[in-house]
Design a protein around this nucleic acid. Sequence first.
DNA 1: TTCGGGTTGAGGGAAACTCCTCAACGCGCT
DNA 2: AGCGCGTTGAGGAGTTTCCCTCAACCCGAA
Lengths: 234, 234
Amino acid sequence: MDRYIEAVVAIEGSESLAAIQSIVRSSVVPLGYDRFVMFSASPAREDLVDSIYWVEGDWFGKGVTVDAETYVRHCPVTRNFLNVDEPFFWTKVMSARGEKYRVVRTPRGPGFHGLQVPVFGRTGLEGAMSFAGTRIDASARTRAVLTMIGAAAFRAARRLIEAHEPNGASSLSPREREVLRWIAAGRRQADIAASLGLSERTVENHLRRARLRLGVATTAQAIRLAIRSGEIED
Amino acid sequence: MDRYIEAVVAIEGSESLAAIQSIVRSSVVPLGYDRFVMFSASPAREDLVDSIYWVEGDWFGKGVTVDAETYVRHCPVTRNFLNVDEPFFWTKVMSARGEKYRVVRTPRGPGFHGLQVPVFGRTGLEGAMSFAGTRIDASARTRAVLTMIGAAAFRAARRLIEAHEPNGASSLSPREREVLRWIAAGRRQADIAASLGLSERTVENHLRRARLRLGVATTAQAIRLAIRSGEIED
DNA sequence: TTCGGGTTGAGGGAAACTCCTCAACGCGCT
DNA sequence: AGCGCGTTGAGGAGTTTCCCTCAACCCGAA
């Protein structure tokens, strides 16, 4: 079976971030990519980047430490994820007024180029993996490979990292969330009661408790807050 | 380069649905999958499935035509996409009270099994590709292959189909949008009327027209749709 | 000028939702 | 056993929204 598929399987089975990184490296360094950034993201944040899982390689010049803030400030093409839902290549252009990053169809020749691979989930953008290098292979094949490996690596890394961090406790109970989901889907309280096998009163009570917990006055506002915080699917 | 990667590249370059289907078939039939469903979906719809792009093979018994409604009614595991954001295997279980579909970690032995591969985008769930067969390879490798091919095939198919169907983007009027924004912020119609200097009736009328345009039954659902389509800010 | 669309507003009635309090049951935890 | 929490459900009263129809005004396009 294909070696890149094997890499994905190995990534999925990895038990440490270092293991994931090692597999990614050995897979994509031969393709010319030797700088990596992996981060979780949320379109609700205006700076997009939530927290960085992995930074490696010389991104902005020797000796520059890259943290979340630096990365976002220097790499504005990341915001392109708000407009597209596929991986895209970028290239660093040197102009009279300094360096500039630009989204391109195909980066050519030597220079600093990269591929941003977004990872989407139920709530939209969840994170990304970014590959870069000075002499990269930018073929359609390589893009497909990086798309697959980047997505697998991000999911595997997040699985490991979120296992260690106390996950953001959702403020709604399962029932409250379920009722709210149906309301957001356009059902009436009575319909929901029927399809869940509850009394209309119970549905109403769940809704009220949900409003209380979310600290809002109306159900419409609760829908919006719940979507924003990922309690229910957008 | 790997043959499955080549398949993905070929899918991305396809200019017809038939071409995509042909590539998918030749890639996954050797793995035991000979039944396919590809559909666009939206968590906003309570039946989840929007429209079906591709149905092939014997899903529910010989001679049963599968349309969107039949598929959803017979295949409740599809709703599992609301809870997970990774592909999952399912299997058909024969019990005393008829057949039942169940989500499983690994389907074993002969029988009717399948893999559901969700495709996510900026707005969350966008569609899925479903592979099934009676003697399937359910290894981690195959799951990785189907994940990649399913996602590529769905995106390519949607690109082709949406190019033909000019989507009627029905937008809201400025006033409708403004009222909806306030509603989403938790205001009551009467409050909005006061702060916009309108009568309560007018606010109510704007809301009704907004619901009509968005094609939804309740204001709560309108909030969600408007957020999804970017009519109001999240 | 006529036509369509957006905005404004009304009446009347029906349906749905919100708010308050109270209470029972199960489940896990100390 | 006692406690907290989630789930379920009720009565009663009040508020809010929804539905349907009708109509006036303004404005830009045909």
